[in-house]
Design a protein around this nucleic acid. Structure first.
Lengths: 145, 145
DNA sequence: ATCTATGCAAAGTCTTTGCAGTCCA
DNA sequence: TGGACTGCAAAGACTTTGCATAGAT
């Protein structure tokens, strides 16, 4: 999964502007989410175990969620909020749980048009897609046949 | 939370048509989800603990998810899938709060195509749109100018 | 009759919590 | 310095797994 450059200074500014403490664990977790995308707590613990305690991962995750620095996705992963990454939606595989980002201008346009057909001027939207990824499509076929 | 009548026969038919076993625990879990709406595994275990084993709750939940009988929501709850409750999206006006249903085949097609572009076969989706309804667009213009 | 699903019980993970020490503003 | 944050360690909650039995087609 490709990601935009890590805007660590944007994060620091955000904390400062909101009167929140800037600590090492918060920076570490922010970098992890910015560079590796949506992850679960256990995944982050595995990756960051040497840099911060498990309890701190959970507490910092809660802190991020409460302060809108991150959001939870349909499949239980956590990712940076809208302010810290480009706008996109999710596509989750219902079998293997793999999740990938959708950044699709055609889809964005379709949403705007659909709203317009009903007389609305679209301001915001949330979209969650779920289905079978290419790998699981193949696997389920071979099982069924 | 108000819910549509429990279509247990629809569920039975679905299982039969897909060559899946119809068992008591599956019926119990289905009724629980149909009558009480989205719930977490622990909640279901508390409620149904006397009727089925914890392990069975988890296994049946997985079974429901894999077979698209249920889906997972953003906050980690599980609810019945599209086939077992009316499909609809919402369009909410951010000023007057008026909400209307969206039943737009073009939009549905656009979602399917967007998933396909990433190699996914779309099974379910959730869409929430928000913006200004025609009336409030007019009103806000007259206020601004 | 065969194959699948369930219950039981135990093991394995994940998450939360209390407290003492450390770091930030 | 004072208050907030972190690490450590233990407790608690959640989820998964193996195996024998019961149930479904």
């Amino acid at each position: 999964m490709a990601h935009a450059p890590i805007r660590l200074d944007q994060f620091e500014t955000y904390l400062k502007d909101h009167g929140l403490s800037r600590t090492k664990p918060r920076r570490v977790l922010y970098r992890a989410l910015a560079s590796a995308g949506p992850q679960t707590a256990p995944q982050l613990i595995t990756t960051l175990g040497s840099e911060m305690d498990r309890a701190t991962v959970y507490r910092t995750l809660d802190f991020f969620l409460v302060n809108a620095i991150a959001v939870r996705t349909t499949d239980g992963h956590v990712e940076l909020g809208e302010s810290f990454r480009p706008h996109h939606h999710h596509l989750v595989c219902t079998i293997c749980g793999r999740s990938q980002a959708v950044d699709d201008q055609i889809l964005e346009g379709a949403l705007t048009e659909a709203a317009k057909r009903q007389g609305f001027m679209l301001q915001t939207h949330q979209v969650e897609l779920a289905g079978l990824c290419s790998k699981c499509q193949t696997l389920s076929k071979s099982v069924i046949q």
